[in-house]
């Protein structure tokens, strides 16, 4: 199986690559459209600030490539947020794959949310064998509202989308690569998708 991690200069790519390796698989890093198009599975990572990450995507033309991909694509953290319509962070226009906006937590809670929180209302094959209310590691200041594409929710200030799915596109707000054996299970499920 050919796994490509999109390398556009935004994110902790090394950790994802190691997590894939711990599953006995191999992932290549690439920003080459041909290489990405030919992959069986694509991981779209992202850490940092939304508008600068989006600018990096645009600079390499990946902003038009990603929404056209036909194979399973997994956006992680900021990657998932960039797959949405719009983000309050830097007033950023996203890729528009998920029909929902990304907004900031209020000051009623500590921001960023850092740590292990639970995911529930799981409804996607990527959660096969993962128990309801499993703990995942999250680090974020902005969140995706609940919407029709929500496949998992988490509670922090309010219920929000901690995972999304539309057709072949998946997104997770948490870091499966850093979420112990339960996170590894989700990655493994994603790689096992047909």
């Amino acid at each position: 199986m050919k796994i490509v991690i999109i390398d556009y200069g935004a994110g902790n790519i090394q950790s994802i690559q190691f997590a894939v390796k711990r599953l006995g698989l191999n992932a290549v890093l690439s920003n080459d459209p041909e290489e990405i198009r030919s992959a069986d599975k694509v991981i779209f990572p992202g850490v940092g600030e939304a508008s600068s990450a989006m600018n990096k995507l645009k600079a390499s033309g990946l902003d038009s490539l990603i929404p056209q991909l036909k194979q399973p694509v997994l956006g992680i953290c900021l990657g998932m947020q960039l797959m949405c319509n719009w983000s309050e962070e830097g007033d950023t226009q996203g890729l528009g794959i998920f029909d929902v906006d990304v907004v900031k937590f209020s000051t009623r809670v500590k921001v960023p949310q850092i740590g292990w929180n639970q995911i529930s209302d799981l409804c996607s094959p990527i959660f096969k064998g993962v128990k309801d209310y499993e703990y995942m590691y999250l680090v974020h200041s902005f969140y995706v509202k609940e919407c029709k594409e929500t496949i998992a929710t988490t509670s922090y200030e309010l219920e929000y989308s901690s995972a999304l799915q539309k057709d072949n596109f998946y997104g997770v707000q948490f870091h499966p690569e850093k979420s112990s054996s339960a996170g590894a299970k989700i990655l493994s499920n994603f790689f096992n998708l047909l």
Binding site: Q14, F18, K178, S181
Partner: peptide, 11 residues
Amino acid sequence: VLRVAEKVNIP
């Protein structure tokens, strides 16, 4: 750091 990241699945 590289050796830790390879083996450890928590932040």
